[in-house]
Design a protein around this nucleic acid. Sequence first.
DNA 1: GAGTACTCAGAAATCGGTTTCTGCGATCTC
DNA 2: GAGATCGCAGAAACCGATTTCTGAGTACTC
Lengths: 348, 348
Amino acid sequence: MPLCSIFKIEASNMVTIKYVAQHAGVSKATVSRVLNGNLNVNAEMRQRVLASIATLDYQPSALAGSLRRQRTRAIGLVVPDNRNPFFAELARGIEARCDEAGYSVYLCNSADSEQKEIDYCYKLYRQRVAGVAIAITGTSEQAIRYLQTNQMPIVLLDRGYPGVEADSVQCDHYQGAYDAMDYLLGLGHRRFGLIIGLRHDPPVQDRLRATFDILHKHGLDIDHQMIYETQNYGHEAGYTGAQHLLSIRQRPTAIFAFNDSMAVGALRYALESGLRVPGDLSVIGVDNIPLSSFVYPSLTTVAQPMTEIGRAAADMLLARIEGTPASYIRKHLPAQLIVRESTGSPNG
Amino acid sequence: MPLCSIFKIEASNMVTIKYVAQHAGVSKATVSRVLNGNLNVNAEMRQRVLASIATLDYQPSALAGSLRRQRTRAIGLVVPDNRNPFFAELARGIEARCDEAGYSVYLCNSADSEQKEIDYCYKLYRQRVAGVAIAITGTSEQAIRYLQTNQMPIVLLDRGYPGVEADSVQCDHYQGAYDAMDYLLGLGHRRFGLIIGLRHDPPVQDRLRATFDILHKHGLDIDHQMIYETQNYGHEAGYTGAQHLLSIRQRPTAIFAFNDSMAVGALRYALESGLRVPGDLSVIGVDNIPLSSFVYPSLTTVAQPMTEIGRAAADMLLARIEGTPASYIRKHLPAQLIVRESTGSPNG
DNA sequence: GAGTACTCAGAAATCGGTTTCTGCGATCTC
DNA sequence: GAGATCGCAGAAACCGATTTCTGAGTACTC
């Protein structure tokens, strides 16, 4: 087949639809029709095209197809940090679901920076992604507004916004924190230390509100210095948070960390400094990351249904992309308190 | 400006280069030249174009540009599981470096499945990514061969292959495991249990070889039943692994888990069943994930320079994509034993 | 048997950029 | 002052798909 080899050389051996067409002796249009399952093509001809496709190992360019169709099969996933087990689990779920549906996922870490977040949105828009799943930093709503101005289907992860008309999936952070505090109060705790993460984070604000509300209901209050804000959500932050909180003269009998990683850090500091958990100190976290049941003592925590959030987010986004326009859905999933070994009655 | 609004309506308000050109009163070519910093354009005209771009908030389509240029600014990242802290850290590093260089990253979880791995490679090729960073499953080299057949720049993460001509970045798994065993032997341990993960994983094989080598050197051997293979690398696997190993009559005095997550699971089982660590049992892991210094007792481990691996991988891939062809680099970074609290002399 | 409907495949337009080609006007050279 | 050179911008080709348009051939109707 001399034509082929000549052609191959000239075309720098990138197999295109034109090449397949020549190989099969048909037009580009016919190849395209076969690729897209169009029925108006003769069976014998279809076979010839399929044979050529297989022989040449032809993979159509998504670039060209997307340009013409004016739609891509890719979405953007914007999270603060994919190393955070919570977002890692979310990413995993979303990626798996999107792959099933034939979509690809762009990984974007905003590093809790508003600037990076908005920059990524520009970048994703230039890529003409079909949609964006985003856990916004909470510093501003600029990113959301930008995406919405450009008719981009979006789903807000882990945080919804009162003023924003958009699909969102999140755990009920208020209720979760409320339950956690209710549980600790029920055990008899009265002095609490909080390790909260980034104050501007919407989930953090929800949890703070819940904490204040239930404390006030019990006629209690919480001192400024008992609230430790951190720059990230890692173990180290929890460790130094506990260090700070436990150095206070009237030290807390219970530490409520706003995620499990920080709770584990706090746990470590407590044990290291000779305190017994839960004897001298109770520690409670949020998320129910896989680790939480494997540390010793295992961690009492407010579970977020991470897998479910991820799947729901992907489903909603794909529905919004492919489906008919519908009214926005704010999906709130319940948080669930999981009692393990790290909590107990004070002075117990 | 009636022309604009008419045009906007007709063009369904997607801002294209044509629209920008009309708005600025120049040709598409001129807009393109301004976008690409081409100097052959009159200063006053350039200003007019830039003004239009800003006014219209124009974001050029990467699709169209990539199609014409025949190169994209995206890479594929294929890992077994982005939830694994080791790969999460790698992903973070690679994503950050690529973003700096203007590249986007497709997240692909192969789930330790050869089929998913190769399917993702097809998908990435259809996306015409500029390169692929991949931690292959080790079941076959099909994926690598496919990518190389299509002249795709690649970098192998965490594992290199003797027969494969490709850039790779990995830690010296053999040396790491050797050091770990050497250390344990030095402490006086003679009965070892291994929790290895997936046997077909190349790093696992390296570590097994090292373990056998040093044991033989000491005239020791290891029984079949002391090697526990798992289906994944999570805490649970480590937990059940320890359960198995510690139920053996002549139980091991030291457990070597081939990653930290499994080591933490093992730690948990040991403590839960009343053993003292390191008094009754030593536990050692691999990776040095952030968590490892925060569990209690903290984990002795063989550190992999994860951040460095990620950065090096991204650098090598980008160099391969953008740079001149050069001979392949097999980058081996040293593993480093980090002694913490979970190891000590047996019966001690 | 003429006119109509239908099937199916090729030609050509198209998506939105980039790049080559073309050409105009100004400057330079001898 | 005629011809060559240069700067700069528009026209047009191009990337590789999809989709509309067109038309040839066949079947069907009355």
